[in-house]
Design a protein around this nucleic acid. Structure first.
Length: 584
RNA sequence: GGUCCCGUAGCUCAACCGGAUAGAGCACUCGCCUUCUAAGCGAGAUGUUGCAGGUUCAAGUCCUGCCGGGACCGCCA
């Protein structure tokens, strides 16, 4: 429970006592009472809307009720000062000793500070990337990869039981194309001149090695055979090779998912026939013809009967086809089977991270999930909007046709894994964002990665310097948690503690909203306050951390510095970014 | 035509699932500065939150309609 929830609980007790004393009616709804940090620091440490929320139903004036609540709050041991303000806010300040206790808490818990139990161990499945296994990942995949990974780490920190997953789309026609492309490279490896790669096949160089590997393993045995004889084997081999590529790419980004599920394996195991039978039994499948989309005129539209899922019964705009004209299942049909599979594995909460180009897919997948689980499973879909790559303020135009697109690997090689991860997480995933390859490497204030990393490195640097006068054991968090902190009393120091004490609440809010980018803003705020304090020591030597003639003060200040380093490290861990000891 | 996302300071973006005077960074103006290894530091100015209604004690936030940008729209995945 974060400190705001703790005080909220105490406030609810107070209101309960007022109800018992007949100062308030018995039928009040207390759920809307909040205890939050005020936006404006001059409004104290905590603020509650209790009086405004309760006054109306209770038939009282907000400010009068606020005064009564304030009176009771004043009696709490860690509450120093209470004020009624504005339309009926009750603002209160906490004692310095309370903030010192918070600091000790941080030092005791280390990077586990901020761990929460709001997830209550609930099982959640986060599926992300799930790119077609037809080549290396490129930048478009990076945002989804990082977002999904950070979301998973965040939910884990918030107390969920998280499984991360990659769905291998290895059952569609694209992997047939992959196999044909690999076959061409196989012939090339055996000495044929293949010339230009024909339109419709994948031209990438990464298939050359696949062809060579097949030639080395199997010799020329496939050369004289027809496509239907070699296709399956080439598909299997090249998909495996591409997945190795993808896994390597992801690993470079620090992403290692728990489970990889093959679409083809699901289909082969009859999972799709199975789920379609289930839906059919529920009367949710029928043969019918769809209307053409209004206002659009598809070139060769003609109505034809199809196997349809009644998605409209679950909020979708139209019913959705499940079977292609060749008799095989659509991608959607297979995906229904996959989500049923996840549901049967115990996931009542599933999160899919998709690119924005899958926006049209959201309603039908949610509809299907509701249908197959009888409404018991919840599916959340995070759409990641596009990333515009820039370089020194100039947009980098990419086109696949010219082969000029940027791979994920190239991006990581250029700026580093931690920079990619952090920057991708500095914006809400449903806003488009700019990513400037030049700016993110600058050592300046407007580069958030640098700014946050620098704050951590600066803390570590101070702690290293302190070793001239103090032993390593003195500087351990466990030791610093026991030193007297009474001399931590400067407003800037206390403000720093307040921000750190807000970390658990930030984790919970970000996890509840499923918005990792909030962590980036939090870290930036924390770094700002720390750098500010450091700079104050430039002007006023009394505010410096290390004082060779005052061991007690130095230890107290180093406890503060150590706490800052731990909270930053705790935050960076949610992003999967390593905190740096020094920046050089 | 429909669905989804976005629209906030000159620019890039926040605003904690309704709270008080909408905030940061960059750019801009004015001062200062030679380091607890370090990005210079401090101060100042910057808004009809796309538009119009509605709900509420309270709306950038929720609802309705419009405008603008993006993504998508029957057997591609």
């Amino acid at each position: 429970m974060n400190l705001f929830e703790t005080f909220r609980a105490q406030l609810v007790t107070i209101v309960g006592e007022m109800i018992a004393a007949k100062a308030l009616p018995t039928d009040l709804n207390l759920d809307r009472i909040t205890v939050e940090p005020p936006r404006d620091a001059s409004h104290g440490d905590l603020t509650t809307n209790a009086a405004m929320v309760l006054a109306g139903p209770a038939g009282l004036k907000p400010r009068e009720l606020a005064a009564k609540i304030a009176e009771q709050l004043q009696t709490l041991p860690s509450v120093m000062k209470v004020e009624v303000a504005g339309p009926g806010f009750v603002n209160f300040e906490l004692s310095v000793a309370f903030w010192h206790d918070q600091m000790r808490d941080i030092l005791d818990q280390g990077v586990a500070f901020g761990d929460s139990r709001i997830g209550q161990g609930k099982k959640v499945n986060v599926e992300y990337v799930s790119a077609n296994p037809t080549g290396p990942l490129h930048v478009a995949h990076a945002r989804g990869a990082v977002t999904g990974d950070a979301l998973a780490l965040l939910l884990r920190k918030a107390g969920y039981d998280v499984t991360t997953e990659y769905y291998i789309n290895d059952a569609g026609s694209q992997v047939d194309t992959l196999a044909r492309s690999a076959y061409l490279r196989y012939r090339e490896a055996l000495g044929e001149t293949i010339g230009e790669i024909p339109e419709g096949l994948y031209p990438g160089d990464y298939l050359i090695d696949v062809g060579k590997a097949l030639a080395a393993r199997d010799g020329d045995q496939w050369l004289i055979l027809e496509e239907d004889q070699w296709l399956a084997e080439f598909r299997k081999f090249s998909v495996a090779a591409m997945m190795d590529l993808v896994r390597d790419d992801l690993q470079c980004l620090g992403v290692v998912q728990d489970v990889f599920t093959s679409e083809k394996a699901l289909v082969d195991a009859g999972a799709v026939d199975d789920v379609l039978q289930t839906l059919s039994d529920k009367g949710l499948i029928y043969i019918g013809a769809l209307e053409p989309p209004k206002g659009m005129k598809p070139d060769d539209w003609e109505p034809r009967p199809q196997t349809l899922f009644k998605a409209t019964e679950f909020g979708d705009d139209t019913d959705r086809p499940l079977r292609k004209s060749d008799g095989s299942w659509t991608y959607f049909a297979n995906d229904i089977a996959y989500h049923l599979d996840k549901y049967r594995r115990g996931f009542n909460l599933m999160i899919d991270v998709f690119g924005a180009d899958h926006g049209g897919y959201v309603k039908r997948m949610k509809a299907a999930t509701t249908a197959i689980s009888g409404g018991e499973a919840e599916l959340e879909i995070k759409l990641c909007q596009m990333v515009h790559l820039m370089k020194g303020g100039e947009p980098m135009r990419m086109s696949k046709r010219s082969g000029n697109f940027v791979t994920l690997r190239e991006l990581i090689d250029e700026v580093g894994k931690d920079v990619v991860r952090f920057i991708m997480l500095t914006r809400s995933s449903d806003s488009q964002m700019e990513f400037d390859l030049q700016k993110v490497l600058e050592q300046s204030r407007d580069n958030p990665v640098f700014y946050v990393q620098y704050a951590h490195a600066r803390c570590r640097s101070v702690l290293r310097n302190a070793q001239e006068a103090l032993s390593v054991a003195d500087l351990e968090p466990s030791h610093l948690a026991k030193v007297p902190l009474a001399r931590i009393d400067d407003p800037a120091e206390l403000e720093l503690i307040r921000i750190m004490a807000n970390w658990p609440r930030t984790v919970e809010a970000a996890a509840t909203a499923q918005e990792p980018h909030r962590i980036a803003y939090y870290l930036n705020d924390l770094a700002t306050q720390f750098h500010g304090l450091w700079n104050m020591g430039k002007d006023d030597a009394r505010l410096r951390f290390i004082h060779s003639d005052d061991r007690e003060l130095t230890l107290a200040r180093l406890a503060l510095v150590q706490a800052v380093a731990l909270v930053i490290a705790s935050g960076l861990a949610v992003f999967g970014v390593s905190p740096m000891e020094e920046l050089r």
